[in-house]
Simulated scan of single mutants.
Amino acid sequence: MTTDSDLESDLTRGGSTGGLAMGRFARTMGLQLTTLVGLLAIWEGLTASGIVPDFLMPRASEVLATLWRDVTDIITGGPMRGHFFTTLVEILLGFAASVVIGVAIGALLSEFKPVQRALYPYVVAANATPRIAFAPLIVVWFGFDYTSKIVMAVAIAAFPIIVNTMAGLAATDRDDLRLMKSLDATRSQVLWRVRIPTALPYMFAGFETAMLFSAIGAVIGEFMGGNAGLGYVTLLAQELFRLDDAFSAIALLSLQGFVLHRLVVVIRRRIVFWQAEDAAV
């Protein structure tokens, strides 16, 4: 029977745990912000003193001013908003296609060993090929619209999902498989009730990597044949030697990738709730 003192003890313990977690989060954020400010200060000092010429790198203060202008432009519906959301859509569609294709291929190769022996060497060989070498061909094949950027993102991002899906499905405990077999479970029941739950941590590790790779693929596609997007803005600014605009677009790309990666992490924590978390993440 639970007494008032036991309940009070549990509430105190829960509050203490939450306080410790918030304290760790605050210290981590403080450390990260301090590091960022320190790096910006070093950057500003090197460029303001002339150690690094301004035609090689703009001052940090100029980049921050341009970044603030671009963020304001995005919020107020200026021209930068179109470039920002063009790249965002390309990344998300490329990531979604990579998840569908990567999980399907990984599950196929894991479930059917003859297929794995026949196709996996070619999957590895395709991943070893620099996809940027095919970027001009992808533009020729799929045009200058969203499709070529999405295909480029999938070409880069699908492989880590394939490999992690295979590794996760192969990590299923043999005793669990024997138990399901003794219960006359079908192949699909074993897959959905045992193997996929076991594979989820591995799969989400692949999803986190794939989200970042999708951003890289989308930008490469914009470099090779784009007329909109943050990659296009970066390339155009570099050609015009407007380095502050180029660095601002790069910062927005980094922000996009970081936020989208953290979104995958948050979803993983909700779905794979039994996995231990690193306090520093």
Rank of each mutant, 00 (worst) to 15 (best):
L88M: 14
V89K: 15
H83D: 08
L108A: 14
Q116R: 12
V115R: 01
I162L: 09
A155F: 05
K149I: 09
V139P: 12
A96N: 04
I74P: 09
V124H: 07
F84Y: 15
T147P: 00
V100N: 09
R59A: 06
D73A: 13
I161Q: 01
A153K: 04
I74D: 00
T86I: 10
V123T: 07
I105R: 00
M57Y: 03
A65V: 12
L88G: 08
G78W: 12
G77K: 09
V115M: 15
R69L: 12
W43F: 13
D145N: 13
R69Q: 14
I74M: 09
L31F: 14
V123W: 05
V37C: 07
Y120K: 02
P53R: 05
R81Q: 10
L67G: 10
G45T: 11
I74H: 05
F95S: 04
V103F: 12
A153S: 15
L88R: 14
T76Y: 03
W141Y: 11
A128Q: 04
F144C: 03
S61G: 08
P130F: 03
D70K: 11
T34W: 06
L108R: 01
T129S: 06
F144W: 09
P160D: 01
F84I: 11
A128L: 09
I42C: 14
L119A: 11
I75W: 12
G77R: 10
G106T: 00
W141N: 11
G78F: 12
L39S: 09
G30A: 15
G45H: 04
H83K: 06
E44I: 07
V52D: 11
T35A: 15
T66Q: 13
L67V: 08
D54V: 13
A104E: 03
A96E: 07
I105G: 00
P121F: 09
V63K: 06
A158T: 05
S110H: 09
E62F: 03
L109H: 05
V124C: 04
M29T: 10
G77A: 06
A133D: 12
Y122V: 10
P136W: 11
I75A: 15
S98M: 05
Q32M: 08
L92M: 13
N127W: 05
P114S: 08
G38Q: 06
V154T: 11
I75D: 01
E62W: 02
E90S: 14
F55I: 15
G78A: 11
